[in-house]
Nucleic acid binder design. Sequence first.
DNA 1: TTGTACGCGTTATCAT
DNA 2: ATGATAACGCGTACAA
Lengths: 349, 349
Amino acid sequence: MAEITIKEVAQKCGVGVSTVSRALNNHSDINPETKARIMKVIEETGYIPNNSARNLKRTDSKTIAVLIKGITNPFFSPAIEVIEDETRRKKYTMVLRHVGAYEDEVDVALELEKERRLRGIIFLGGGFRKSTEKLKSLNVPVVFSTIGAPLLDNESKAVFSTVSVDDMLESKRMLEHVIGLGHRKIAIITEGSEELSVGQLRLQGYIEALKAAKIKVDEDLIRFVNPNLEHYSVENGYRTTKNLIATGKEFTALFCVSDMLAIGACRALTDAGYKIPKDVSVCGFDGLGLGQYVTPRLTTMRQPMMEISRQSIGTLFDIIDEVSEHKHITLACELIQGESVWKPKGSRK
Amino acid sequence: MAEITIKEVAQKCGVGVSTVSRALNNHSDINPETKARIMKVIEETGYIPNNSARNLKRTDSKTIAVLIKGITNPFFSPAIEVIEDETRRKKYTMVLRHVGAYEDEVDVALELEKERRLRGIIFLGGGFRKSTEKLKSLNVPVVFSTIGAPLLDNESKAVFSTVSVDDMLESKRMLEHVIGLGHRKIAIITEGSEELSVGQLRLQGYIEALKAAKIKVDEDLIRFVNPNLEHYSVENGYRTTKNLIATGKEFTALFCVSDMLAIGACRALTDAGYKIPKDVSVCGFDGLGLGQYVTPRLTTMRQPMMEISRQSIGTLFDIIDEVSEHKHITLACELIQGESVWKPKGSRK
DNA sequence: TTGTACGCGTTATCAT
DNA sequence: ATGATAACGCGTACAA
């Protein structure tokens, strides 16, 4: 099969390659007739420009990249749409790249930056990284979405932006709600990675809330998901809850650090004969749309994903356009009171 | 910021560019010492090869592409993993590309083929396309996953492979199960796009099953999702079911052509005071893991996603390696009897 | 084992 | 308005 190039199109049209290039890139200085003729030939031959060559040559790309940790995280779908719309409005192009579990997101970004002449990058999700060093070598603006700023040192804060919720605080708020209803024996299912993850932060919030309420933190009620499964999956929620139940430990409420985990937890509890929330209360975190369709509706802490993404892309363009420096935005979550949390059994409250 | 290239690395090392290239690409004909020295400089300088230049130059890329319709469809996550593993085992590279709703997947493939020197392509999901013409201009093997072969003409069949389930037949089987329990007034929620979609096929199966059972097809019980929302989302299932209920039409069972729709439907029915399956039976299609965690557990037709993806990548490599021609594989679904379907109210069966 | 030189397909620059 | 030509950064024949 003959690989058709711009050269051959030019020959077929009896014009020079630069003229074809002009036609392709909507340059103004070209005769409309010539352009029409060229476009016709392009249509006929099915010629498609080689992006590698384009990217290699181009100086001004007007593209930003969005990197998502995890192959396919439904949590971010709405966020991506918002970012895409705004990108288009700005006449930029967006490239979406999923970062596998085994890949380093910054490395991927570095590669992509060279390859596509990026103007900016948004990281969606993913853990905190240690290497401010590496991030610095990215010489385009970077915005982290849903990565907490509180823990960053000042040096880091000047290198990139963040838009996030305060995981620790919001988790604490969730617990305060549960404690306020009278619960004292509250279990938690979280992620136990060594990296400082949102799971860890939410665990911190849990501990703080208990301590503030003078409730003894019981290690047995802190359960970690199976790191070999997808961390925040229903299956992991189910299994971890089953294990928790198997310990025989008593608890009247269960806090899952994600809604998916909570749905799995509900299944495990229901299977074991518990009524939710009559026997056990279950709460989640994230505020996935799905949570309000399942039975019982989930009580959860909703992250303002739309607002997060809107602020993220806004911040990125502000920095690209040099109308602002790096900033760190923290947005508030909203407690959604579903039907999965109620007063503990026998409570007179 | 100085864009660092292979040339500068070569200079810093006092060697030629080809030596650096050799070091980068693990060539054998290079002095280990030289290589070590070069790698050290690369490390220090943070040099990263430009992929555009590489792709432009390379003739032998050993990459395949997986194109997924829709930004982030959780349905395909496990499939992707299977494909990725097998690709790695074959010492190939996989590039994953999401195709937006407004993009033409074949166009994207065409572009990617030139850009990355692809050896093969797998399409995951997406509608049937009309343009066999365009597909032919892809000069690498193509496999469609979860696209039915039955409807393809012979010409098409020689141009690409398919691995799928027989949507019409399996949908019919689902209905036979429901009818077998005694239901006669059965509603369906499906997708009403003009394109010949899986939704349309499943609707066909529904109609055939009713006809075979001598049940009159009632147009009022055939409901289409809102095309402006994500077609197979819980929200769409919820809204469409609400509309159905609002018509006042009587039905004892509801068939949703996807599990997500079914979950949304359950919510709407529950909100309206119906008990599932006592008052109304609800069944889905797909066999998402999630369906077995929600309450009630979904009765659904499970697509063997793992097997589909295994066969897809296997077929692709068979064709690449020229050990086989294009083929069309149809796999059977498995009826999962959850708790959402039971005999109709008042039935004596 | 290593270096030189050419070309991959395109866009940008500079003529015309 | 159009054409010739020099890059873009890299891999690879070929020469050394």
